[in-house]
């Protein structure tokens, strides 16, 4: 059962390794695959690169540089940081970014605070109706929040939670996949550890914090990431809940500039880049935690 966490990942999936002397056929195949991989990479990266470079040129040049099509369509002929200066200055994008960060981190904290004990109870404690509670929680939280966002927004307005951080944070704290993954992972801990701790007089709370959480730190991080990413990119909910600029989050702030009459593509691209940096950094460093989801783990 612990295989999910301790399995060696050194195995390469490629069948084409192992033989030393490569036959010409194989060389050709590798060359072909490399070309294909490079082309795929270019298709995916080019729009991102175009956006990044577009944020470093005067806004009007983004479209002007299209004709004539050439090197300068992609690479600025004049470089500037004005777009970023405007974003952090008059557009107050820094504040929206700070709001987004606050909401996402608070959601992770609260989310773990409700998911970890729930997963512990559902994996370790024996009580009647456990499976039903488990299914109810996971299925309930797996229905995408968007599906009921509109009625919930009306309730939140009645409860005076609109235009508040609490209102932004609360819907993000329940994550079905996080609870599911945590429970799977907790079940891998041998029951004898808990029994031994009990004999030493430890409480369930202490056992959870001192044994289960440290032993499953990978899954805890994975759950934290799931919650963070969902909140960071959330769009519909703040659109429904927040009308006040000072509590607005970054995705909405950047979308507002898109629908403005005075469009500056350079600024928009800069803003997009800024909201992408946080998940990019997190995912690049925590990639291995993230890919360890239930879909990919399990015993053979």
């Amino acid at each position: 059962m612990t295989a999910t966490t301790v399995r060696s990942r050194a195995v390469s999936a490629s069948p084409a390794t192992g033989r030393r002397g490569m036959r010409p056929q194989k060389v050709l195949l590798t060359a072909l695959l490399t070309v294909l991989a490079v082309l795929t990479a270019v298709v995916f990266i080019l729009p991102a690169l175009w956006m990044f470079l577009g944020s470093l040129r005067p806004g009007n040049q983004v479209i002007e540089s299209v004709s004539p099509l050439g090197w300068h369509t992609l690479v600025p002929s004049s470089w500037t940081l004005d777009n970023y200066a405007a974003l952090f200055g008059e557009l107050r994008f820094g504040r929206s970014m700070a709001n987004s960060l606050l909401v996402a981190f608070a959601s992770v904290l609260l989310g773990l605070l409700i998911s970890v004990p729930a997963a512990y109870a559902l994996s370790v404690l024996r009580f009647r109706g456990r499976e039903a509670v488990f299914a109810f929680l996971v299925v309930g939280f797996m229905i995408p929040f968007e599906a009921i966002a509109i009625p919930l927004a009306q309730f939140f307005t009645d409860w005076h939670l609109n235009n508040s951080y609490i209102g932004l944070i609360l819907p993000g704290i329940g994550n079905g996949l996080a609870i599911f993954n945590l429970r799977q992972s907790f079940r891998g801990v041998p029951a004898s550890l808990r029994e031994a701790a009990f004999i030493d007089g430890a409480s369930d709370l202490r056992i959870m914090m001192r044994i289960y959480v440290p032993l499953n730190v990978t899954t805890v991080i994975n759950s934290a990431l799931l919650i963070f990413l969902a909140q960071w990119s959330s769009y519909l909910w703040p659109l429904l809940l927040i009308s006040n600029e000072s509590t607005q989050v970054a995705p909405i702030a950047i979308a507002r500039t898109f629908t403005d009459t005075q469009v500056n593509f350079g600024q928009m691209f800069g803003g997009t880049l800024l909201i992408s940096v946080v998940p990019a950094v997190l995912l690049l460093f925590l990639q291995r935690f993230f890919a360890r989801s239930i879909a990919t783990s399990g015993e053979k």
Partner: peptide, 13 residues
């Protein structure tokens, strides 16, 4: 790389 860009960013791009 693109999957780190929120959907709102992809829409803008």
């Amino acid at each position: 790389v693109p999957c780190t860009i929120p959907l709102v960013g992809s829409s803008i791009a």
